[in-house]
Nucleic acid binder design. Structure first.
Lengths: 219, 219
DNA sequence: ACGAAATTACTGAATATGCATTCAGTAATT
DNA sequence: AATTACTGAATGCATATTCAGTAATTTCGT
């Protein structure tokens, strides 16, 4: 058996066990058992338990970002790009549930080091979204008063919460397609009923959005 | 010193320490020190370390839900209600950062028991949002094809991600007001530029939303 | 009003346990 | 024969929890 085999066997086992039990409640002996190796063998491939978690993150997150970027490359229309992003994201989560669980839950409450590391990679991911927004604004199809820095978080957060819900409730009420469609549509169209002859129902009521976006602090 | 005093002193200390170090890296001795009691005293008020976490959740989450409901009670317009929800939510997070950190991070990866318990309370919170949507649909001001079950998660997720960002980066780029305004506006109006005479830019391009929301699986 | 006895509250060093990590020994490969 | 890969029982440490002892508070008889 080649080295690469055990390395990845242990990693895969770890992803499974960490996702199931959580990092702190996962036992090295469980991972060893799951990977069909001795406890000690794990330490030939990883420095310690924490190192396994970091490696999972390092080796897997890059793949995801690359995949999303690649799949979006040949989509032109900003609105469709946003929808595609949602669709791809949700599909990845669905196909990598254990990994998604770890990234969503375990990596959040880790050491300062891994947290910062996570955030760096994460920022890269979020910036895919803000780039789409800027592109849409430049093309004149998205509103100019939208702040990409807020939008990217709102949009990602919506997807993230939706997928968290999936991870919890195994039996899904909605398809990935429907969720991606609705969520991207919320953000593109809004939920306010479009009254013919007016741009939106909201504009009816000046008390609701008195001076929209006038309270910026910093850029 | 009254009993109630120590109970809440220990709880407050725990919130602080858990938020700072994470549940698993928090030491009982640290909490004791922070609360100015002996290690053993903690066990006169709580069964074990985990019990403290559960109690934090039990005693604090109810207050929050009650506060939000109460503050929304006298708002009528659904659109404004949505904005108010965002504003109140973000303000609560801002004013209870340690607690927010714990609810967001620590309670996620806990035992099955606490997870389920969290989800129950959490569902109650989310349903405030879907109620607003249904109210708006009944009043004819929100689109009928919006699914409240998806919307509530998307909307909450957007707020949650925004506040997570705040918890991480101490120096804030945006005010709570601005974020609440933008996020509720994304969802109400969308970001697609409103072209006069048309209901939205999206309707321009039939390829983007071919058969919107036609792939429902279950209700 | 006072002190003694009883009750209740608190302390923190000692205990016990659980588990990550090590390493002397064995097996497989070159 | 030498090198490399693996094993899993033994080690050692960290820390949640306990509990014998001390302090504070309350009760109650004179």
């Amino acid at each position: 058996m080649k080295i690469a085999d055990k390395h990845s066997k242990i990693l895969q086992a770890s992803i499974k066990v960490f996702a199931q039990k959580g990092f702190y409640n996962a036992r090295i002996s469980e991972i060893a058992q799951e990977a069909n190796v001795a406890d000690g063998t794990i330490y030939l491939y990883f420095n310690n338990k924490y190192d396994i978690l970091i490696t999972i993150f390092e080796e897997e997150i890059g793949k995801i970002i690359a995949k999303v970027k690649q799949e979006l490359a040949n989509v032109e229309d900003p609105a469709e790009k946003l929808y595609k992003f949602a669709l791809i994201h949700l599909n990845i989560v669905e196909e990598n549930q254990d990994l998604a669980e770890i990234i969503q839950v375990e990596l959040r409450q880790s050491s300062k080091f891994i947290k910062e590391y996570r955030n760096k990679k994460f920022a890269e991911y979020l910036n895919i979204i803000s780039q789409i927004v800027r592109q849409g604004q430049a093309a004149g199809v998205f509103r100019q008063d939208v702040m990409p820095g807020i939008f990217k978080r709102a949009f990602f957060g919506a997807l993230d919460e939706m997928s968290r819900f999936w991870l919890l409730s195994s039996k899904k009420k909605y398809t990935v397609n429907l969720a991606a469609r609705q969520i991207s549509d919320f953000f593109l169209q809004g939920i306010a009923r479009q009254v013919p002859g007016r741009t939106s129902a909201l504009n009816d009521d000046s008390s609701v959005s008195p001076k929209l976006f006038s309270d910026v602090v910093t850029v």
